[in-house]
Design a protein around this nucleic acid. Structure first.
Lengths: 192, 192
DNA sequence: ATTCGATGAGACAAAGATGTCTCACGTGGT
DNA sequence: ACCACGTGAGACATCTTTGTCTCATCGAAT
């Protein structure tokens, strides 16, 4: 009964392929399956064996992104302390997934008519709830809707990720710049 | 000498095609030449007669976007009044071009190795100069670099444009939400 | 040593997009 | 009425990407 013995570490390989694909597609969202395979250090045949096609690959990346986001949301303990502190923790936890998020953020408009992965709705709801909590506690302004703040967080994460890859901002400043702009804005607080 | 008489309004048609293409590609950045042609109400043959190929079309859209941005920068009179007022005027002037900007913002990473249109560098420099002026006048924080503020402005414009097209935020709130978040952030100003 | 399974390399057809071409039509100017 | 020019429709070859296939090879377990 040798068929019960799993010789290779398929799960690990699959994860490595996804990471490589995410890294490549973040930089070049139109990369071909061949390029993705080369980036992962495998052949196109093997890539096709693990992911039925490009669509399946993108879907898998979407699931990975959602999974990482949810892990980040969990790790950030959104209900603890002030909403401001929670937002800071959240951005810190999301930093590692920023590149993947940036890719998915622009790719999602591709899934126009088709069914959206329900995971995004869950994530949006949790983030919006955080911003709403901040509004109800008096920390956040009430004239910016939680939906817009959520959207802005995604957008700033994507902008930051691209700016870092293109060298326009330093990678070490990523977290600080996003959090400070999102929470405090460009104006000096001692203003007026 | 009838060849000196221009029967048709090619310039107008070309502009109309560009507008249609911009509107379509903002929603679906992978639209084919056929779809672009249909969206503009012309045949693919005519589209090819006006733009040598897809590349030429995107380049023309890039030029259009740069042109509209520069017009917006001029109209916003970045050197008048406080930097804050100038930023508000700038976002207002840029609103009409937000969709096109969002498309080009994500498409620009396509032009990786190739030469970037120098227009972007000019625009970036002018915007960064505005933010720098605000920093030197004491209006803006100095811990957020002008380059990052410029990048964030692009990102928020793109996020806002997509959020509007997908109905997540109201179109009438576009300008307000971007300006308020960029300048003031999410925190209430009476804080601490 | 042998066997099993995964891999890499490459061939192959199918599908989609692109670019070029021809031709017929209609409209406006002569 | 005639002509010139732009246009739409479609055929066509080409290119790229994709998805599937076969086959040889390598490694590990037996």
């Amino acid at each position: 009964m040798s068929h019960v013995v799993y010789h290779c570490l398929m799960a690990v390989d699959r994860d490595h392929v996804l990471r490589s694909a995410a890294a490549l597609l973040t930089r070049k969202s139109t990369a071909t399956m061949d390029e993705v395979a080369k980036a992962a250090g495998i052949s196109r045949a093997t890539l096709h064996r693990q992911f039925a096609g490009r669509d399946a690959l993108v879907r898998a990346l979407e699931s990975l992104g959602i999974q990482e986001c949810e892990a980040a949301l969990d790790a950030a303990r959104l209900d603890d302390g002030t909403a401001q502190e929670a937002v800071r923790r959240l951005v810190k936890e999301l930093e590692a997934a920023a590149g993947l998020l940036a890719f998915l953020y622009t790719e999602n408009q591709l899934f126009e008519g088709e069914e959206q992965n329900e995971g995004w709705a869950r994530l949006d709801a949790r983030m919006a709830a955080l911003f709403r909590r901040g509004q109800e506690s008096g920390e956040f302004r009430i004239d910016l809707t939680p939906a817009w703040l959520t959207e802005a967080l995604y957008g700033l994460m994507a902008s930051g990720a691209w700016a870092v890859t293109e060298g326009r901002v330093a990678a070490k400043d990523f977290h600080y710049m996003i959090v400070e702009l999102l929470l405090g804005g460009a104006l000096r607080r001692e203003e007026s």
